[in-house]
Each structure stands twice: as C-alpha cells, then as structure tokens.
Amino acid sequence: MSLKGKVGTEIEIKSPPEKYYNIFKGQAYHVPNAAPDHIQGVDVHEGDWETHGSVKIWKYTLEGKSGLVFKEKVEYDDANRSATLIGVDGDIMQEYKTFKATYQVVPKGTGSLAKLNIEYEKLREDVPAPDKYITLMVNITKGIDEHITKA
C-alpha cells in the first residue's frame, strides 16, 4: 500500500475566476467571514497576505471538531490562477508527512470551475486518504463563492 497519493474534485461556481483567485492571492482574511462554520480565523505568521512564500496559520473546524490549526506556506501561480497551501505544522501534520492543498480556478461559461486537489504522504499506513479535507475545501469554496456573488 502506497503512503503517497492525490485526491481531488471539481465544482462549478458562479464567481468570476479573478475574484475567486484574488481571495487566496491577497484577501485570505475574508475566508472566515465567507465560511465561518469551517474557518474561524487566519493570521499571517511570516510575510504578508499576498507574497509567494508567506506563512499563514488557519483555525478551522472539521467534522464537528473545532480548534484545529493548519500552518501553511503559500505558493501562487498567477498564470493558472492557482494557490497551493503547503502544510508546515498543525493538526494535519500529525497524520501526514507532506500535505499540499491546491485551489485552482478556470473560466467556465459565465462563472468558473474550481479544481481542488491534495497531494499527500501519510505518516503511517493506517492513516486514511485526506477525503475529509477535500470536503472541507469544497465547503470553503462554496462559502467564498456565495460571499463573492452576494457582494
């Protein structure tokens, strides 16, 4: 059984791709307002809101468990409207040696297609694939989409 893997999904959203990507690129502080049931806070630990390589600390709820923390270093790909959050510390890192969550958005019709992926390496064979984190990413994306389209 392989410890490395990749999981992902795609969902259609109403938001224009630039507005969705810009939330991750420089306005991540809006995510707790857009998805308060899932994200309770995000703070810059190193760098700033929009610089490649900045480090942020997210406080989140997963499957009813609140008070979880994810410390990530962000990589931006402006050409592909993609933000990759690379886990460096936090609750996730108790189960995964590597954890890279990517939010990418591409134009589709009058809205966009959000492509959500996680590349990971488990610490042990008994650790499940991070499907619950893909569900979290979907819920965050839906919240961001609603936040953008009602604004």
Rank of each mutant, 00 (worst) to 15 (best):
F70A: 15
K73A: 11
D145I: 07
I144S: 06
M1Q: 05
D37I: 03
K142D: 09
K115C: 02
Y133A: 08
Y103R: 03
D78I: 01
I13V: 12
A151P: 02
G47Y: 07
E119G: 10
E125M: 11
Y21W: 12
V7T: 12
L3D: 08
K142S: 06
K100C: 15
D48R: 02
Q40K: 14
S82C: 14
E75V: 08
P36S: 02
P130T: 12
N33P: 00
K4Y: 03
K132W: 01
D77R: 02
V74M: 06
E72R: 00
A28T: 15
A34C: 07
I134F: 08
W58D: 10
Y20R: 00
S82F: 10
T9F: 06
K71H: 03
L3Q: 11
K59D: 15
I148M: 08
N22S: 13
K56C: 13
V74E: 07
I148N: 04
G143T: 08
L85F: 14
V69H: 09
G41E: 08
Y60T: 09
V127E: 05
L136S: 09
I57S: 15
R124S: 13
E63G: 14
M1P: 04
E50D: 14
I140K: 00
F70K: 02
A28N: 11
P32T: 04
Y133E: 00
I144E: 02
P130S: 08
T141M: 02
E12V: 06
A151T: 12
E119K: 07
G53N: 05
K97G: 04
S82M: 12
T61A: 14
L3K: 08
P107L: 02
M137W: 05
I86T: 11
E125W: 10
I144Q: 06
Y76F: 15
K97I: 06
P16W: 00
K25A: 14
K65C: 06
A28I: 15
K25E: 04
M1F: 04
K65M: 10
D43E: 14
I11L: 15
S15H: 05
E50C: 10
Y103F: 15
P36F: 04
G143M: 09
H52E: 13
G53K: 04
V31A: 00
K25Y: 03
K56N: 05
L136G: 13
T110K: 12
N80C: 04
Q40M: 12
V7C: 10
S15V: 00
A151N: 14
H30D: 14
S112F: 03
W49F: 07
T51G: 05
V7F: 02
S66Y: 07
S2V: 02
